[in-house]
């Protein structure tokens, strides 16, 4: 796969602070890379360097074969960027703003109109086109920022927290949009919402303290969880004590009684790398327990994320 974004040893120091430390990765066409990390981890700084806003202290970013340091203008043509907080000129209307971006990106007349119309349609902006951006809600502001980033149909999209501050419906729409665009583009999104990584990303990078800690698929990322492949067993009769029997199963290291929104259940935790669902179902059948719910947990991204970033801190 040809890499559309190549980040090579990116390092940024602000005085004595190293905000980004030797970050290297590549993103190819069709990939959606989720950029994860606690606040202040260096996500935005890395994105600012990839898009050519900040000059790196060391290293470089190469966009579609164009080096952001040596050929910034050519490289920037291939990038659509949604900065953190989706800034927009407060006095301008979305239509004026998009017209400006279209012109400065080299589109005129009918071509500009067609591209603006498409971007407006994709981000469902039509209803607010003539209102000053400062009067728009957070959700619309973000969509104006997205429309602006999509206008020139770039091969590379860098979106800094694209769903931050959106309501669940809007989040869903933006994620759908990203998924629709994904096959044609190389996309990097930063987020600290882990479900988002599951929903849209084909790969996840965890960054903390300016360093890349993990670069993996969301699935394998979740597999690092202690709870990966554990079995959640909920019995219809809460009086049954299944704990001792479950613990005796081969490959089971712990049985934790849990109580959450769904009710009381047992969480059967396997040894690392083992699957125990077969053993558990066999036991349930032989013991004749009335089962209310039974499922295999993938492991929660949250837990892994906390583990990793806490270790780094």
């Amino acid at each position: 796969m040809e890499a559309k974004i190549e980040v090579r040893h990116l390092t940024k120091r602000f005085g004595p602070i190293t905000a980004v430390n030797d970050v290297t990765f590549a993103v190819g066409r069709g990939e959606v890379l989720g950029f994860l990390g606690p606040n202040g981890a260096g996500k935005s700084t890395t994105m600012k360097m990839i898009t050519g806003f900040l000059a790196p202290t060391r290293g470089t970013a190469v966009i579609c074969g164009l080096d952001m340091i040596d050929q910034p203008l050519e490289a920037k043509r291939h990038v659509g960027y949604l900065p953190e907080g989706a800034p927009g000129y407060p006095d301008m209307t979305p239509s004026g703003f998009l017209a400006f971006v279209a012109r400065i990106r080299g589109f005129d007349g009918a071509e500009a109109k067609r591209r603006i119309a498409l971007a407006v349609e994709r981000t469902t902006l039509a209803s607010v086109l003539e209102q000053p951006i400062e009067t728009l809600s957070k959700g619309f502001k973000r969509r104006v920022g997205l429309a602006q980033a999509l206008l020139h149909d770039p091969e590379v999209l860098i979106l800094d927290e694209p769903t931050d501050g959106l309501d669940p419906n809007q989040k869903h729409e933006v994620r759908n949009l990203i998924t629709t665009l994904a096959p044609e583009k190389a996309i990097v999104i930063s987020t600290h919402i882990l479900e988002e990584v599951d929903a849209v990303c084909s790969r996840a990078i965890v960054i903390a303290g300016g360093r890349v800690l993990i670069d993996d698929t969301p699935g394998r990322f979740a597999a690092r969880s202690r709870l990966h492949n554990s079995v959640r067993l909920m019995l219809a009769d809460p009086a049954i004590d299944a704990r001792t029997a479950l613990l005796r199963l081969p490959g089971v290291v712990a049985v934790e009684p849990i109580e959450d929104g769904e009710g009381r259940a047992f969480l059967v935790v396997p040894q690392e790398g083992r699957a125990i669902i077969a053993e558990v179902t066999d036991l349930v059948r032989t013991a004749g327990w009335p089962v209310a719910a039974l499922r295999v947990e993938r492991g929660r991204l949250d837990d892994v994320f906390r583990d990793i970033t806490a270790k780094a801190a």
Partner: peptide
Amino acid sequence: GTIELFLTLP
């Protein structure tokens, strides 16, 4: 923050 948009235009 529009400076970030402005200066990442080509």
